[in-house]
Every structure is written in structure tokens, then in C-alpha cells.
Design a protein around this nucleic acid. Structure first.
Length: 437
DNA sequence: TCTGGGGTCCTAGGACCC
DNA sequence: TCTGGGGTCCTAGGACCC
């Protein structure tokens, strides 16, 4: 009806099923087929459910306290999240995919878009099945694969694949309209709660109706993002595969607290810790930040609600922990208001540029991780080589502002200070060298 | 009592300059 | 004293994703 671009493309979306829950099941084979849920950082909400857990009616994002009875009754196995494990498994899956597809875009920790354009439809489908089998065999992770002429349609196809026994579904041109008619508009990739409600009020309730709406109207009423989406639903590819996602635009570290925080000192301690972690990420990626944002807030459901942020332009781009902590603490003092119960805070590093100077980084010799002891050594090094002075010590025993998983984490109980420390000097990356003063 | 964390992109509106 | 328009840059906030 609308026709495809001359050079028609084929995209595949490979999505790991119940990814975090599947990872846990890989390392506890007895749990295969059992109800398993994984909780968010503070053991607050459900962030992944195995198929059996979904079958019990446990919803995504549901607060844990609401399902506690259900968990007991059905002996659901509950895990706190282990992002290092999931990151590692993700990498293994992505490596396998890159061996079998010419171009792979890692879209998220558990999803990748693949370019299948070189193949015919039948070949694509066969390749999908082959890939699915190999990923399962080599990593233990089950995946679903949706194949279609655009990324947005590949998302739709993936939903079908997830529901089918084969785990692979190819959406050909002639089947698009029929499938979209069965999909409600809020289930389309890129249509969130807000836009769905607004569209429904305009009489656009299914994905097919959205496909048939005038792109110009959508652009005027909403924005260019949704206009692209309409074209994509029509089979016209507007979202290319992003193979080399440019280096990060921002780095965030934020947490909600285990209990309400009311004093400025405690709030500062939390923010100093987050800043330290953010600076670490910065150095790992060989970047420096030109600005930073600090934000604090009471609980989302609290009354009165207080939510404020401060953006600070740094005198010069830096990735020194001490300098960044100094700035973040000053911002915290400006943001703090007595009388409020703070439940969350965070730090966002902005205006990232490639770090010009060689950066010193410390890694645990065995695990490659960090510890408080290492962090304080790192601060000492920053003090010696960097410009700022350390005003705040990032140490201390676990307390309320650490999450439950952090409190459980061995990095707060092991005496790593007694272990030898490895000092590595990484060469500068001069893609966009930062001007020397 | 207990409600995640880390990102991206777009737009509107204000400040500022010529 | 009165009166502009257009361009750019920046920021805050909204909306979306997993």
C-alpha cells in the first residue's frame, strides 16, 4: 500500500527472555522452570520474572512488599540484582551475535538489533533459528528473534516471537496491517503512557490506526520522533542501525536510600560516595566532565515533596574524584533543606570530553573491582596529582543511605586494604583532546 | 513500613546580541 | 522616549526506552 524504499532492508531484534531471571537460572540449574524474580537495587521492586513467575501474576515493576505473600505461598525464589553478572552474560551473548551477523547494534543489556539485509526472507528466518539455538547452547540464555523491514516493526515481530513456541517470527509486508490491527497503540515502541492517552483521545487506539495517520499531522501535534515512528510502522526505515554509539553524553550515579535521610551531613556523605563512583566511571571511559549536576529529592509519594537540582560548571574539565566531590558537596549544601525526609539523591556528569592526561586507575588485582580502601588510596593519588584538595573522606561503615545489596556486598566486609594494589597508567585518547591550560 | 537506576532525545522559553 | 526582529545559546523539563 505504501511501498517500501527501493533498497529494502531486513532488521532482526534479538531479545533475551526474562534476562536477569534467566541469568540467575543459568547459575542455579535447579531453578529451571521454577518461579524466579529479581529485585531492584534496594530490593524495592520486581525488575525481572521468570516465565513461571509471570504465570503467577507477578507484574513488572511491582513493589516487593505487595507480592510477599504470593512469594511465600508459591515458594518463589527471590534474588537481589547482580548487575556485574548480567553485564558479563550480556557481553557473551553480544559476542556470539556479532559472529553471525555483519552488523550488530547493542541496544540495551538484553537486546540487539542485527542487520539481515543481505539475506532473503526465508534465509533470515532460518538464520534466526540457528542463532537462537547457538545462544542457548553456548550461554544458557533463551532469546526471541523478531524480523521485519524496520526496527519498530522488528520490535512488534519480537512480541509475536516471544509468544510463539519457535521463538522466531518474520513479519513480511503482507502481514503487517493484520498484525498491527491486533496491537493497541500503547504497545508500540516509542509510545509511552502520556502519548498513548493523548492518541486514544484523538481516536487512535490501535497500531494500525497510528500507521494510517498523516505523518505531517503527527509532527505538528507531537514531534518528529513520532513522525518517524509512523513511517517505520509503514515499513519505511527511518531509524538506522547505530553501530558506533558515540561516547557517552552523561554519566549518572543515583540511588534511593534505605531509610529517610534528614541531615545535611548524611546527604553529603551519600553524594560524595556517588560522586566518587561517577568519577571512577569517567576514568574508566577515559573522559573528563566539564559540568556536573547534583539532585536530591524526597520520596515520590511523600508530602510535602521536594525535588531540586543544581548544575555546576567546572572551572576546567576534570575527572579527579577530590575536585568533583568538593563541587558536589558545595552543591549539596545549597540544595539541602532541613525538615525534609530525603529518599533519593544523585550525581550526573555532563559535557564529557576525552581526557588528555594519562589517567591513573586502581583495580583490585583479582576481581578488578573497587573497595573503600582502594577508593581512599585513589583519593590520595588524586590529591597528589590533581588540583583539588580532598575535603571529605569517603569511608565509613554501612549505614542507612547504602542500599541493601550494597550492605550485603562483600566489598564492605573484606579487608582489601591488606591486598597489594595495582597501579595502571592508561594512555591518553586524543580523539577530542582537551585544551591544556 | 516497604515503590529502581541509567540513559537519550526533543522542545519551549529565556537571555543575549546585532 | 518610543519601538523591532532574527539568530544563537543555554537550561529546564517532559517523554521515552530498557
Amino acid at each position: 500500500m505504501y511501498g517500501f524504499p527501493l533498497e529494502s532492508r531486513i532488521f532482526a531484534l534479538c531479545d533475551c527472555n526474562s534476562f536477569y531471571a534467566s541469568c540467575e537460572q543459568v547459575f542455579a540449574p535447579g531453578l529451571s522452570g521454577q518461579p524466579v524474580v529479581v529485585l531492584s537495587n534496594n530490593d524495592g521492586c520486581v525488575v525481572a520474572r521468570s516465565t513461571a513467575a509471570k504465570g503467577l501474576g507477578i507484574g513488572m515493576g511491582v513493589p516487593y512488599f505487595q507480592i510477599r505473600d504470593l512469594v511465600q505461598e508459591h515458594q518463589v525464589k527471590v534474588f537481589s540484582s547482580n548487575y556485574e553478572l548480567y553485564g558479563d552474560m550480556s557481553q557473551r551473548v553480544m559476542e556470539i551475535l556479532s559472529q553471525f551477523a555483519p552488523a550488530v547494534e547493542t541496544y540495551s543489556i538484553d537486546e540487539a538489533f542485527l542487520d539481515f539485509s543481505g539475506w532473503r526472507w526465508e534465509q533470515s528466518e532460518a538464520l534466526g533459528h540457528q542463532l537462537r539455538q547457538i545462544v542457548k547452547q553456548w550461554t544458557g540464555i533463551p532469546v526471541s528473534i523478531g524480523i521485519a523491514p524496520t526496527k519498530t516493526l522488528a520490535k512488534v515481530a519480537n512480541r509475536v516471537a516471544k509468544g510463539s513456541t519457535g521463538g522466531v517470527y518474520a513479519l513480511k509486508e503482507e502481514a503487517i496491517a493484520q498484525l498491527l490491527a491486533t496491537l493497541s497503540v500503547d504497545e508500540v515502541w516509542g509510545i509511552g503512557r502520556h502519548h498513548a492517552k493523548s492518541l486514544q483521545a484523538q481516536g487512535v487506539t490501535t497500531a494500525l490506526e497510528l500507521q494510517q495517520v498523516q505523518p505531517q499531522w503527527v509532527r505538528q501535534k507531537y514531534n518528529v520522533v513520532m513522525e518517524r515512528l509512523v513511517w517505520e510502522l509503514r515499513g519505511v526505515s527511518c531509524l538506522p542501525l547505530e553501530l558506533s554509539p558515540g561516547s557517552r553524553h552523561s554519566i549518572t550515579v543515583s540511588r534511593s536510600f534505605g531509610r529517610p535521610v534528614t541531615t545535611c551531613a548524611e546527604l553529603g556523605a551519600a553524594i560524595a560516595t556517588y560522586t566518587s563512583r561517577a568519577a571512577e566511571k569517567l576514568r574508566q571511559q577515559q573522559l573528563s566532565a566539564g559540568a556536573m549536576q547534583v539532585f536530591v529529592s524526597t520520596g515520590r509519594f511523600a508530602t510535602p515533596c521536594y525535588r531540586q537540582s543544581q548544575t555546576v560548571t567546572l572551572p576546567s574539565a576534570t575527572n579527579h574524584t577530590a575536585t568533583l566531590i568538593q563541587q558536589s558537596l558545595a552543591a549539596t549544601q545549597r540544595l539541602y533543606r532541613p525538615g525534609y525526609a530525603f529518599k533519593k539523591a544523585g550525581v550526573i556528569l555532563l559535557d564529557l570530553v576525552a581526557a588528555a592526561k594519562p589517567q591513573l586507575s586502581l583495580l583490585h588485582p583479582e576481581t578488578g573491582g573497587r573497595s573503600e580502601a582502594l577508593m581512599s588510596v585513589m583519593d590520595a593519588i588524586n590529591r597528589r596529582y590533581g588540583a583539588g584538595t580532598l575535603q571529605y573522606a569517603v569511608c565509613g561503615k554501612p549505614s542507612g543511605w547504602q542500599t541493601k545489596s550494597e550492605q550485603r556486598s562483600p566489598c564492605y566486609t573484606t579487608q582489601w586494604s591488606q591486598l597489594p594494589v595495582v597501579l595502571a597508567e592508561s594512555p591518553p585518547q586524543s580523539k577530542r583532546p582537551y585544551a591544556q591550560p
